[in-house]
Write a protein that binds this DNA or RNA. Structure first.
Length: 448
RNA sequence: GGCCCGUUCGUCUAGUGGUUAGGACAUCUGGUUUUCAUCCAGGCAACAGGAGUUCGAUUCUCCUACGGGCUACCA
């Protein structure tokens, strides 16, 4: 009888950012953990700022995140007749009044005057003038405000359209919302909405206000400090599971546990607790979660989500992924850190050459190249033996020859073990790159 | 300014009227690694301040400070 039903109600005036995504996750989990439904409602009554493309982006973002809403998406723009109906009812029963839309205090004079409606007037809701409005918040506990603090707020604009605080109540009513889980920027609206429910003589839903997310500098999250859209995290190479897990842990906890997969979340959400205070976003920790989920994936799964032409399912591409996976904490790093496995370095950082190629580097590398050419079994251990021997013979440190070799083959100073890289690349490609590199640094020397 | 809410390591947090205040991320130090990363071991680090209540408060109450939110014919 009292089925759990929640909703997430964004206004399509921008992309879905992580704060909204987290609020939605909590509303969704609250319902799903109790066999309930969670609806998506697009609050597009602000015709100026609402855009269809944002609606599409929001829906896409949730699809990616793996948050699936129930029933049809509700668009407030479709419900204007219904809002007018309720406003008329409120007017008829004396719970609202027509006024000139000046400041709330002067408008109050029209409370009982029955002004004629025209295209200049607005409709205000009559707030109780005495007593308190109190409610029990699921996350914050009891919250109370004196009614004298509350203004008679506008429910119908001069153009005849209904405003937010009225639409919300009507839609929550019509959708049979049992629990309103939303951001705590709405606590003050709750007092207004509760009084509308009362005027309508309807049951008031249970409210739960989750605190906001703050940027890394502790300030309100905005585009300037890291309030990226959900889709942008996807672009950064973050896995949806990781973002979801991180967002959950930002404000929700169950003992000392950190890892919660999609199923774990639903199963345990009721056993955990929601924090009352705002939390600061940390990219470092998100990345840690991302690495964790990356580690759980098989090579085939990785190949599937990376979506790079070079990762074609061949043994070679699998080997590449296997050898670099420890050093990657985002999907994108699999792409940017493996290019040298698929094509010869085109150019080298001049500063790199300058720093690591000294006078005798050419001779050292030439010697090494000669030794590698005559190596019959092209395997890591044998390649390592060759390098070790050359290092020993020349009485130099490994870095004197290993680093230039790494640069020659990969064009960078960090890579997996260079002997392993040689093996994976194969003898032919290794020698080819070495040859090209030798020519390069020889010219470099004659240029000087 | 008014109103509402909040405050445990740098960050996310666990926890209790009596605890060596726990974990995770970050950081630092070792070990592994010829580089980087991974991995392993260890270290540093917190109850905002002041009054009460109490035999005893991080935990309960009040005040202050600080932080966040709201204060639209936006949502």
């Amino acid at each position: 009888m009292s089925a759990i039903r929640t909703r997430f109600a964004p206004s399509p005036t921008g992309y879905l950012h992580i704060g909204g995504a987290r609020t939605a996750l909590f509303a969704w989990l609250f319902a799903k953990s109790q066999n309930g439904d969670c609806l998506l409602r697009i609050e597009d009554t602000d015709k100026e700022r609402s855009k269809d493309e944002y609606t599409a982006e929001i829906i896409e973002s949730f699809k990616w995140l793996g948050v699936e809403f129930d029933n049809e998406v509700v668009y407030q723009s479709n419900n204007s007749d219904r809002y007018s109906e309720i406003i008329d009812q409120l007017l008829d029963q004396g719970s609202a009044y027509i006024c000139k839309g000046e400041d709330p205090e002067t408008d109050k004079e029209y409370r009982d005057q029955n002004l004629p409606r025209d295209n200049k007037t607005v409709v205000r809701f009559k707030m109780p003038e005495e007593g308190n409005t109190v409610y029990e918040d699921i996350v914050k506990g009891q919250i109370e405000v004196a009614n004298e603090q509350l203004d008679d707020f506008i429910i119908e604009r001069s153009d005849g359209s209904a405003t937010y605080n009225l639409c919300v109540v009507v839609d929550d009513l019509d959708s049979n919302i049992s629990h309103v889980i939303r951001g705590d920027d709405h606590v003050n609206n709750t007092f207004k909405q509760i009084n509308v429910f009362k005027a309508l003589n309807k049951n008031i839903p249970t409210y739960g206000h989750v605190p906001m997310i703050l940027g890394e500098d502790g300030k309100r999250l905005s585009k300037r400090h890291g309030a990226l859209g959900v889709r942008e995290y996807a672009g950064l190479g973050i896995l949806p599971e990781a973002l979801k897990n991180y967002l959950l842990r930002l404000g929700w906890s169950m003992g000392n546990d950190e890892i919660f997969t999609g199923e774990d979340m639903k199963k345990n959400f009721q056993s955990g607790i929601l924090n009352k205070s705002p939390a600061i976003f940390s990219m470092d920790k998100l990345l840690w979660f991302n690495k964790y989920y990356l580690d759980q994936m098989s090579i085939d799964q990785l190949m599937d989500v990376i979506k790079l032409k070079d990762f074609d399912g061949s043994e070679y591409s699998k080997t590449v992924i296997e050898t670099v996976r420890d050093r990657c904490s985002t999907l994108n790093e699999f792409i940017t850190d493996t290019d040298y496995f698929f094509k010869d370095p085109e150019d080298y950082e001049p500063s790199l050459l300058l720093k690591h190629c000294k006078d005798n580097t050419f001779n050292h590398l030439s010697l090494l190249k000669g030794q590698l050419e005559s190596l019959e079994i092209w395997e890591q251990t044998h390649i390592k033996e060759v390098i070790d021997r050359v290092v020993l013979d020349l009485e130099i440190g490994f870095g004197k020859i290993g680093l230039p070799l790494r640069i020659a083959l990969t064009s960078r100073v960090n890579s997996p073990s260079i002997d392993l890289v040689c093996e994976i690349l194969g003898k032919e490609i290794t020698l080819r790159r070495l040859e090209k590199f030798l020519t390069k640094i020889q010219n470099l020397k004659t240029d000087q």
